[in-house]
């Protein structure tokens, strides 16, 4: 694979909801491999749909989306989602222990051959996001909103995705949690993970250059 191969390539992609709202109208653009991409745009422009198209939670019809040079529609969905992880805006934390929540990806067949992290490794991960005081046997639903978001981001990262699609991960978080989540995403990007993040506020990564995508009226403009 060549070094200049984009992570994602959109070729003349269109997407319209059945009600007639157009999210993308024959749009072509690329997202860099290993980079940090920010997605901006007004509410209802379809930023979440754009991310959902990238891991096939929604399917495009016209046009083609390529992931690392391969047609997205030809890739096995579970294998794709293992590599291209999408984190929902509102963290979904089931009524289970913190350990079970973090190890959830290993409960699925796609990760059955992988060794799950030990308790020590999990405690280390929690410590890195300022959750040292949380025990692995504690219930996840007792955590605060900010802690839930950090926990769900850790759960997404624990299976080692190559691409992280983040849907406004800092929306409605207090400043401390927000800083923590932003630091986590920058750290993941520095370690080679491609990050694509929807943001409503004026966030830009402190330590990394970022590509900015603006989505409005079915059109995408890219600012590198």
């Amino acid at each position: 694979m060549g070094e200049d191969m984009p992570c994602f390539e959109f070729n003349e992609v269109s997407f319209t909801w059945p009600g007639g709202r157009t999210i993308l109208h024959r749009q072509s653009f690329t997202l860099p491999e290993g980079g940090f991409t920010l997605v901006r745009g007004p509410s209802g422009a379809g930023k979440s749909t754009l991310l959902r198209l990238m891991n096939r939670l929604e399917e495009s019809g016209d046009g083609e989306i390529l992931y690392r040079g391969k047609k997205l529609r030809n890739l096995e969905p579970t294998a794709l989602r293992q590599q291209v992880a999408y984190l929902q805006q509102t963290p979904v934390i089931p009524d289970r222990s913190v350990r079970e929540i973090l190890l959830l990806p290993f409960a699925f067949r796609i990760n059955s051959g992988k060794t799950s992290p030990s308790d020590d490794a999990l405690y280390k991960m929690l410590g890195a996001v300022q959750m040292d005081d949380i025990g692995l046997d504690e219930s996840g639903i007792a955590l605060s909103g900010g802690q839930r978001q950090r926990l769900s981001l850790l759960r997404t990262l624990v299976a080692g995705p190559r691409v992280l699609l983040l849907d406004e991960p800092t929306a409605s978080l207090d400043s401390e949690s927000r800083r923590c989540v932003e630091d986590m995403t920058e750290a993941a990007c520095r370690q080679g993970t491609t990050v694509v993040m929807i943001t409503h506020d004026g966030f830009t990564p402190k330590t990394l250059p970022a590509v900015e995508i603006t989505l409005a009226d079915g059109r995408v403009s890219v600012c590198r």
Binding site: R81, Y86, L104
Partner: peptide, 10 residues
């Protein structure tokens, strides 16, 4: 359901 799909579940 979508959270699990995103983590690689069938």
């Amino acid at each position: 359901v979508e959270m699990m799909l995103c983590l690689g579940a069938t």
